[in-house]
Design a protein around this nucleic acid. Structure first.
Lengths: 367, 367
DNA sequence: TTGTAAGCGTTATCAC
DNA sequence: GTGATAACGCTTACAA
């Protein structure tokens, strides 16, 4: 009937000991400092009273909030829910919770969200919003905050990052299109100030070269954001070039291509093949099902969660890590030794097929 | 160079006043208690030092965390991100943040998440996971916690709820199918222990009656969860009944119907029309685009955010609300006067068409 | 209008 | 092994 919260003091009174002793008995770290006998008595009292520690008071005293700030562009982008769940689930295993912040890819909002989280004394940050050069990350680095980057990485701030191998992924897309007989392959490039946009663009150029295919400048259109609208606009431009296939910088851009193709009265893959990147949920159910470069989103999130917990446990970013040749012998893809790459996998679906002329030839042979 | 956090004391020292005065000057509520002159001095000192209040200390003192717990089944279900964003955005406007918890529709997990949030002293809860009868909600009600239900409601706990008008929504679906000429319309019912499942089922029965259409018992299949798998299973059963259209309890179940139809080698809408409910993001891009009952997800979230803030501001659920005939003159759909209904809208897309025999007739007339 | 002092519930640093 | 005490940074009667 009495709602008043039970405190350490209450438990102490019931067990006939000092509050400090209760604290010790209940805290796994210090449990060994108290005799089993009294510990038992305390434990019994605690759960007979239904004691629950006050995490706020604990945070004030320990300067640990058991909380991690997670900054993402937009929860509505289907790429992020599985990543966020991966992070949350990993954090939960250690008694941590995530504070989610949406930045809408806006720097001012990002700063606002970031500062709100600092005010709440989060123990660390996971950024899914990193641009290659970011004043915010520079600040975070200078302040010695615990930070992990996910999906994207940034240049030279020394933060660990988890992402798919973008170069390899886009290479798989190009190889697939080339194998189908495409020669004029265009690229809708993502924003070039974020690592995914730049890496996939570079990977595209490299992969085309590897297949002895030319990349005319007009065969690449640059999206200013990973949005359906930008994909549509870029695809519209590319249709002038006579390309027969498009490797899009991500699935959103690919969906934008679908829209542009519909508008132009063209069929996919009949007239133009389209490949996405990320293989977001439901991409396998589009019209047509989207061929896309896939990776384990949830696992990326879990790994990011693991890394941030590790960093926090080390007592901050200054701990170790960060530098030099510590990352194992050679072969690292990036200059930053702390980027954890996951392997991509190409999911071939209905949005890719042979180019129109080849298809006609094929039909002749068959019919 | 010095990272040590700036406290009230530091600001007080610089401004040459007592910490308490700084507190008053910086708090909007008490700002008027201090002279403009000293307030200015304090403000100047505060932001010259870059002072940021310690929210943890504040929470401990005020017993307010400015935090709301949001329980959802699964962030990966595309229905929830827009709702969550609506909640978050509304909360942010008042300096509150949301703690997201995924329950995976599991009671034990739900309790765990709930208790974790209580331990963190959230000021209120938004439940998107309510079952009609829920021990957890009963407890919350007994404890006088601030609670708002979203998307679903529950029976008799007196909590405000925000959701779409399910009866009206499913009625629109049935009316649409009937207008197309369907007579044998089946229903994949959602779980009957949650309000959405029950309301839509009842709405389906009522709507069929309104159109003088019979509902044979075997024309309703009951899903045990809102999952693609269950939709597939149920649709498989319904295919035995000779129905020509299916009104699904939600979009997940509708997608499950797509799977079952593919497996059976049937076409949609050629052989069977399918209508979903919720109109989740990307449902307009499925194969075929899904006809679905739509509503403003983001707005539902915002309204839920508004309601929980209001309840918290009132100083708890016990404040007022809850009871009696306060809800305006008559016409309430539910016994609980606090359910806020949003109007549904039917989005007609490619998954619905005339029944096969009618279609054949139509073709004859045309060709 | 401002200063004083107590206290939110915990944990850390001493003694004993 | 346990108790006493102080402190984390802030708010809020109450006093001046």
């Amino acid at each position: 009937m009495n709602d008043l919260p039970v405190t350490l003091k209450d438990v102490a009174a019931m067990a006939g000991v000092h509050p400090a002793t209760v604290s010790r008995a209940l805290n796994p770290e210090t449990r060994l400092l108290v005799s089993d006998e009294t510990a038992d008595r305390i434990l019994a009292a605690a759960d007979s009273l239904g004691y629950r520690p006050n995490t706020v008071a604990r945070s004030l005293r320990t300067r640990r909030s058991n909380t991690v700030g997670v900054l993402i562009p937009d929860l509505n982008n289907p790429l992020f829910p599985p990543i966020v769940r991966g992070i949350e689930d990993r954090l939960a295993a250690n008694g941590y919770v995530a504070l989610i912040g949406n930045t809408d890819a806006d720097d001012d909002r990002e700063r606002l969200v970031f500062e709100g989280m600092r005010d709440r004394h989060v123990d660390g940050f996971v950024f899914a919003t990193a641009r290659l050069r970011s004043p915010l990350l520079a600040e975070a680095a200078a302040a010695g905050l615990c930070v992990v980057l996910v999906n994207r990485h940034a240049e030279g701030y020394g933060f660990p990052a988890v992402s798919v191998d973008n170069e390899q992924g886009i290479a798989m897309a190009v190889a697939h299109l080339a194998a189908l007989g495409h020669g004029k392959i265009a690229h809708v490039a993502g924003p070039q100030d974020v690592s995914t946009g730049l890496s996939r663009y570079r990977g595209f150029v490299a992969a085309m070269a590897a297949h002895d295919l030319a990349v005319e400048p007009e065969m690449v259109a640059y999206a200013s954001a990973y949005s359906i609208e930008e994909g549509e606009r870029c695809c519209g431009e590319l249709l002038e070039t006579g390309c027969t296939a498009i490797a899009a910088g991500n699935d959103m851009l690919a969906v934008g291509c679908y829209v542009a193709l519909e508008t132009a009265g063209l069929s996919c893959p009949g007239d133009i093949s389209v490949v996405g990147f990320n293989d977001m949920p439901f991409m396998d159910r589009l019209t047509p099902p989207l061929t896309s470069v896939s990776f384990a989103h949830y696992e990326v999130g879990k790994e990011a969660g693991r890394l941030i917990l590790e960093q926090i446990a080390r007592g901050g970013a200054r701990g170790s890590g960060g530098g030099g040749a510590a990352g194992g012998a050679g072969g690292e893809i990036s200059a930053d030794p702390q980027v954890h790459y996951l392997a991509p996998e190409l999911k071939v679906r209905g949005s890719t097929g042979p180019p129109a002329n080849v298809a006609v030839g094929a039909r002749r042979r068959v019919g």
